[in-house]
Computed example of a mutant assay.
Amino acid sequence: MSKKDKKPEAQAAEAAPLIHTIDEKSEKKKKLDSKFYEKELVKLQVELVKLQEWIKAEGLRVVVIFEGRDAAGKGGVIKRITERFNPRICRVVALGTPTEREKTQWYFQRYVANLPAAGEMVLFDRSWYNRAGVERVMGFCTDEEYKEFLRSCPEFERMLVRSGIILIKYWFSVSDDEQERRFHARVEDPVKRWKLSPMDLESRQRWVEYSKAKDEMFAHTDIKQAPWYVVNGEDKKRARLNCITHLLSMIPYQDLTPEPIKLPKRRANMLGYVRPPKGEQTLIPEKY
């Protein structure tokens, strides 16, 4: 059949650029068994608690950056990492739009204020790389501000590493088809709709622009002292297990799990304490 004889839809399909990727379209794998996933996740979370105790004991300062496209799975991994952690040791930083005052500050200033002290781990759910991604693509920064970021970011990160901070950077990669599927899932789920912002919908229309911005970002900031580690995010469960496994491999740690505590017998009520009647308290309705 000649091109002339083909239907318009078929011609359009041939002409359309293929942008499936992880940033190539990932090979589909068999779905991970849920029981196996849960079992492996619990094992990894036990190790994360050991890592937590080591960070506290050794006074380490750890920064982990999570970047990637919208709906790539960053939040899901962060949630599984922090589920068993002590929030006083590990905290999540997800900064919103800068205030008018922050816009006049040194670009990295508001991120520096959230860096860890000794014995802390900070997980950045998006980070200073906003300038190389959304700000660049959406035109929220000038060309000069963008170029200055690409120049200064590697030096800023080398400075962090020289100061003793352990800096680990993850990029979650997902295909356009999978991102579209997850967007639709969020639309259909009332408890997930908050995850879709007008900015997410706009970025959906600019897949290629974001791809180019990511490539340029990697070219300048994938440095020896703080390399980018790419996580295949096509399968959420695999991505979580793979990312946590890699994170654990990045920080040598020892098992400092506290020994089991033997609870002493409770002392008898020697003070004659009498609990006030429940009728004097305001109880919530017991609907369940």
Rank of each mutant, 00 (worst) to 15 (best):
V46E: 14
S203F: 06
D235A: 09
R80C: 00
I244V: 02
N232S: 11
P260A: 02
S249Q: 06
L196W: 03
V46K: 11
V63M: 10
V274F: 06
M270G: 04
H20P: 15
R238H: 10
V174S: 05
E144D: 11
V174Y: 05
I65R: 05
M199Y: 09
M159F: 13
G76T: 02
M217V: 00
H184A: 14
L263E: 14
R204S: 01
D143W: 09
Y273I: 11
E286M: 09
Y111D: 04
K195P: 10
Y253V: 02
C153T: 08
C90W: 01
C90Q: 03
T142L: 01
Q254D: 14
P276E: 07
R182P: 06
R69T: 12
M159G: 10
R69W: 10
T282F: 14
K4S: 13
V174R: 06
G59S: 07
K278V: 11
L95K: 02
K192W: 00
Y229V: 15
E180K: 13
A57T: 04
R91A: 08
A226V: 11
F172W: 04
F183P: 08
I22H: 11
N232V: 09
A268F: 08
A117W: 12
Y273W: 12
Y37V: 02
F218R: 01
W228A: 02
K147Y: 00
V112C: 11
L201K: 05
I251Y: 00
A226S: 13
A219T: 07
T97K: 13
P98E: 01
I89P: 08
G76Y: 01
K278G: 13
Y146V: 03
P190A: 01
I166M: 10
N269P: 06
W194C: 08
A57N: 10
E145A: 13
Y146D: 09
A185P: 10
A132M: 09
K28D: 14
T245E: 12
S127V: 06
Y129T: 05
E155D: 13
L271W: 01
E38H: 15
V208P: 07
P198K: 00
A10G: 06
L196H: 02
I22Y: 11
T257Y: 03
G279Q: 09
F108Q: 06
K25G: 06
F149V: 07
M1H: 12
V49M: 03
V63D: 03
G279V: 09
K79C: 01
W207S: 10
K192H: 08
D23C: 04
T142R: 04
Y229K: 14
R131G: 07
W228N: 06
Y111H: 11
N130L: 11
V42E: 14
E157G: 02
L150T: 02
